[in-house]
Design a binder for these strands. Structure first.
Length: 280
DNA sequence: AACAGCTTCAACCGCTGTCTT
DNA sequence: GAAGACAGCGGTTGAAGCTGT
């Protein structure tokens, strides 16, 4: 497979972002969204590669980023999820609203890893295992047109609610959004622009309605694809999570329900696995 | 106050997976 | 089916900040 160089090294700036650059990026995404990261810096007038812009946005500028120290609950969650998932930081991040994979990775390496007994440290799963093929199906189910990262992100930002045996389960942002709103006053970076978080999510991404429709379709598809979902989910729970009761995972921001924050990936994983298990 | 060693974290790099042509 | 293009992921790095002496 061909792969273009990450960024043409000529003339592109590297290193720490300046507040001015941040503002340009924020303004641009507020106005135009981020359909094409590669083209974005040119269009926005930034001397950065698209990758760098994407990273900056995702890890720092996004309005729903929760900054500040990790709570004990969050740390416990990371530890448990890491035990389950290994170094799949993005999957872990999907369960921690407002936290980024990069941040979690850093916290893991700087704090949490040290808490593990040396033995467990040695047994830390290698992350060089192949990434799970999990997104394809999700996209195929709805992708008649190009699924951009924006759309994908919106899928994750929607708030599907699933009831499994009386358990109400929702996507991360059900809680994220409320918590993130409380934390919208990003320190350091001026997020006090006219738009704020909402406009980023709505204005910038013109097809909100379409995506919403897609999401609903997706969830209904997943849930209706097999009426034995509940039972299979239980099997999956027993097999996959055994003594770690996923459904009673510590809540991060409220005492409400169960799996408080989960990403589409995880849900997709969960759903597909649960459907596949009987055939294994 | 000055220095060295340590810690933290933002950012980069290179790879893989997926989509498009 | 092959190849190019792109997004996303995880590992790593290095500058800045912190702490101890």
């Amino acid at each position: 497979m061909g792969r273009a160089p990450c960024c043409e090294k000529l003339g592109l700036k590297k290193g720490p972002w300046t507040p001015e650059e941040d503002q340009i990026l924020i303004n641009y995404i507020n106005t135009n969204g981020h359909n094409n990261w590669r083209a974005l810096p040119k269009q926005a007038g930034l001397l950065r590669c698209g990758k760098s812009c994407r990273l900056r946005w995702i890890n720092y500028l996004r309005p729903d980023i929760k900054r500040g120290n990790f709570t004990n609950e969050e740390e416990e969650t990371i530890l448990k999820l890491h035990e389950m998932l290994g170094n799949r930081w993005s999957a872990i991040a999907a369960r921690l609203p407002g936290r980024t994979d990069n941040e979690i990775k850093n916290v893991w390496h700087t704090h949490l890893k040290k808490r593990l007994p040396p033995q467990e440290n040695n047994n830390i799963k290698s992350t060089k295992k192949p990434r799970p093929k999990q997104k394809k199906k999700l996209e195929i189910t709805k992708k008649s047109n190009k699924t951009s990262s924006k759309q994908k992100q919106e899928k994750e930002e929607e708030e599907p609610i699933i009831k499994i045996e009386g358990r109400t389960m929702m996507s991360p942002n059900t809680q994220c959004s409320s918590s993130s709103n409380n934390n919208n006053n990003n320190d350091g970076v001026s997020m006090n622009n006219s738009s704020g978080g909402e406009s980023i999510n709505n204005d910038g991404d013109g097809n909100k309605d379409d995506n919403l429709a897609l999401d609903e379709e997706f969830w209904s598809e997943v849930l209706s694809s097999d009426n034995s979902y509940d039972e299979d989910a239980r099997k999956f729970e027993d097999i996959e999570f055994g003594d770690l009761d996923l459904f009673h995972f510590p809540l991060l921001s409220s005492s409400a329900s169960t799996v408080a924050c989960d990403g589409m990936d995880s849900w997709y994983d969960f759903c597909t696995k649960s459907l596949e298990l009987p055939q294994l």
